[in-house]
Design a protein around this nucleic acid. Sequence first.
DNA 1: ACCCAGGTGGCCC
DNA 2: GGGCCACATGGG
Length: 221
Amino acid sequence: MTPMDLDRLLKLLRKTYDVQDWWPSESPFEVMVGAILTQQTTWEIVASVLDRLREEGLMDVDQMASVEVSVLESILRPAGFYRQKAKRIKLLASYLVDSHSSDPLSLLDGPTDSVRKELLSLEDIGNETADSILVFAAGRPKFVAAAYSSRVLKRTGVLCSDDYDEIQTFVESNLRGGPRDFRDLYALIVQHSKDICRAVPSCANCPLSRECLHFTGQGRR
DNA sequence: ACCCAGGTGGCCC
DNA sequence: GGGCCACATGGG
């Protein structure tokens, strides 16, 4: 089995999947809202909820900040954890109004590390949500070290780790590419994970490969 | 009737 | 610093 590295993995995945426009959105604020909504929820449902929010004119920071919580909750219900998410999204909008003149770009402006810290300081925005926003709304070279990412990296023998920071640091210091490549790598990993496909071989040398092969995702034994 | 989804935070030891 | 748990609806 030839050694697998990040560049080869990226190349193999690109041969099989197309992730152009993988995170469709019309604005940075929409990415932020979508990032919170997609926590533990399928994108198909999130997309329909985003459509609804757009129809209701709520894809606007000021409107979102002043909407009635019960109204927001009723729209978010299909996406699960709707009370939590409604409160969180409204608070995010209020925070943008109060601290960033209602301009999402103001929050996303500045050194990546400080933007990340500011995002993480907000309730219900953890590593994956913050990094998704950094990559897909701000175009930063950040890697989302989600469960899918660790499984695929382990399964392919690129890196055997479950530690978020360790995985992220590894990818960010070994992937020689631009923001586009960081975005694609994560998108491709998720796309691949949803598939039963074997676009990339698995590595038997990884001590964790047995676990990886069990792969709790749907469609895989 | 399960199990899982493009997670996060709180509590326990 | 890990191991549980609640949060909640919808689809396979």
